[in-house]
Amino acid sequence: MDLSSINPLLLLASLMVASTPILLAALGELVAERAGVLNLGVEGMMITGAACGIIFSALTGNAWVGFAGAALGGLLLSFLFAVLTQVLLSNQVATGLALTLFGLGLSALLGQSFADARPPAFPKLDMPILSDLPVLGPVLFRHDGMVYVGLLLVVAVWYFLTRTRAGLILRAVGENHEAAHALGYRVVLIRFGAIMFGGACAGLGGAYISLVRVPQWTEGMTAGAGWIALAIVVFAGWKPVRLLLGAYLFGGVTVLQLNLQAAGLAIPVEYLSMSPYVATILVLVILAAGRAPGSLGKTFHASR
């Protein structure tokens, strides 16, 4: 055993990268859930994003176009979910599960001729001065653009939900859709927006795996990241800043687990891997503040 071979700074830096896909996907799901919509199809939207990312970047040779395409792919898939659950009033749980199945099939079909495609290099932003800071420099300021997009989005969502009128309305819709409707807000329209934001974010998260973290296309390559994103939203008690913490915890456990193994520490991998989920349940129990939005998962129909 040689724990000294683990460099905590490098560990922190890798953790930020490893957590980016689940952070992005979880952020989108958080907004959807704050609007009262439980979309269990995150995995399906992520994997579709991963496939679209490869396709768009391979065709244009530009990784940013790849990300845009991935966001679009995730958004279109979530639009399907929105139509089903908001217009045709299908059950959200069942529809989300079906969406995952659909997304896995769709992505495999779309991606089948791109298995050999290698996405274009995605450069790291070498920020002058900042990246040379001792300690903080290598940890915080030597990543690629999407890591910062993820962090900026966290701030933006936090600001939107807590500091803007539109965010207030969105939360009201999620808390009690009957009341929000009575006040004259367009419940269905607002939820469409929230769902599609969720889809676009999940698409971005998926593409981060296929374009940056791996980078290549393999069927089913998100390997459950979408489900982890769902857990993070709960862990965070539907709060954006705590979401960041949750994403680092869940992503961190994976990175830490691998690092401990490499350092020769005999660890029970399965028990360590399940610990964040147990922690999430404990958080749900202990923190009363972590109460789910009141209308979460409930079908809304404006009857006169």
Partner: peptide, 18 residues
Amino acid sequence: LNPAKEADAAKALIEQGC
């Protein structure tokens, strides 16, 4: 086969001096 995990594992090994 789990590309994302393989990537993370490789990074962990490299960071530890392999």
